[in-house]
Amino acid sequence: MIGNDIVDLNTIKPNWNRTRFLDKVFTEKEQHIISISENQHQTAWLLWSMKEAAYKIYVQQFGKQFFNPKKLVCYLSSSTSGYITIENETYTTTSTISKDYIYTVASLNYSENYTSAVFKIENDSYITQNESLKRHFVEIVSKSEGLSINDLNIRKNIFGVPKLFHNDSKLPIQMSLTHCGNYCGYVYF
């Protein structure tokens, strides 16, 4: 299973460092990591992105949704890799950090071979982002799998997890989609 998340650093709210937000989202250790970081803004959103990407796998894996960001605990191995624990589960993460965005892919282990990409769109409307991302992803899969684009569609299950279908048959593709501001990302295998 796989999950991803992207944060557009240019469009997110700059007041991330409010005590109430930090206390609600990050453990004491995570807040310490943020506080000693050279770029606190970037580190806060890196940890957030790691949590979101791992949460997507957890929901796929167990069919349980919850809102308790502190239940997801981040550990950094380097500036762009780490892992998340949720209860007794561990998910590895790899992040790309640019001046414009942070993009994280989470997986059950580092050995999963996946295809992932980030692209920019000029419209930050949620609906436009969502439709552009789905269209782009379907085009990529259509080309790579040799399937007619007209026969592919994305449907969400009862937990909001997107699944790719060829006509009425669910394809055996693990996937995750994300968008924020002017950036979209997808990952699949």
Rank of each mutant, 00 (worst) to 15 (best):
V25I: 14
L152K: 13
L177I: 10
G160T: 09
Q31K: 10
Q129F: 08
K24F: 13
F26D: 08
M175F: 10
C74Q: 10
K156P: 06
E139P: 09
L171D: 08
A117S: 15
L108Q: 15
I33W: 04
S79R: 14
H136R: 13
T92M: 07
W45M: 01
I34D: 06
V7C: 05
Y126P: 11
P69M: 12
H166Q: 13
Q129L: 14
I34G: 09
K120A: 03
Y101C: 02
V73A: 14
S79L: 14
E30M: 01
F137S: 00
Q65A: 09
K99R: 12
W45V: 01
D151C: 14
N150Q: 13
I97N: 09
R155G: 02
P162K: 02
L147W: 04
F67Q: 09
Q61D: 15
I102N: 08
T19N: 10
E145Q: 15
Q129I: 07
P162D: 02
I140N: 07
V59C: 06
K13L: 02
L108P: 00
T11C: 00
A117R: 12
G82S: 11
Y186A: 10
R20H: 14
I121E: 02
K24N: 11
K163A: 14
V138E: 04
S142F: 07
V161T: 05
V7N: 01
K29Q: 07
N15F: 00
L72M: 06
Y126I: 08
L108V: 13
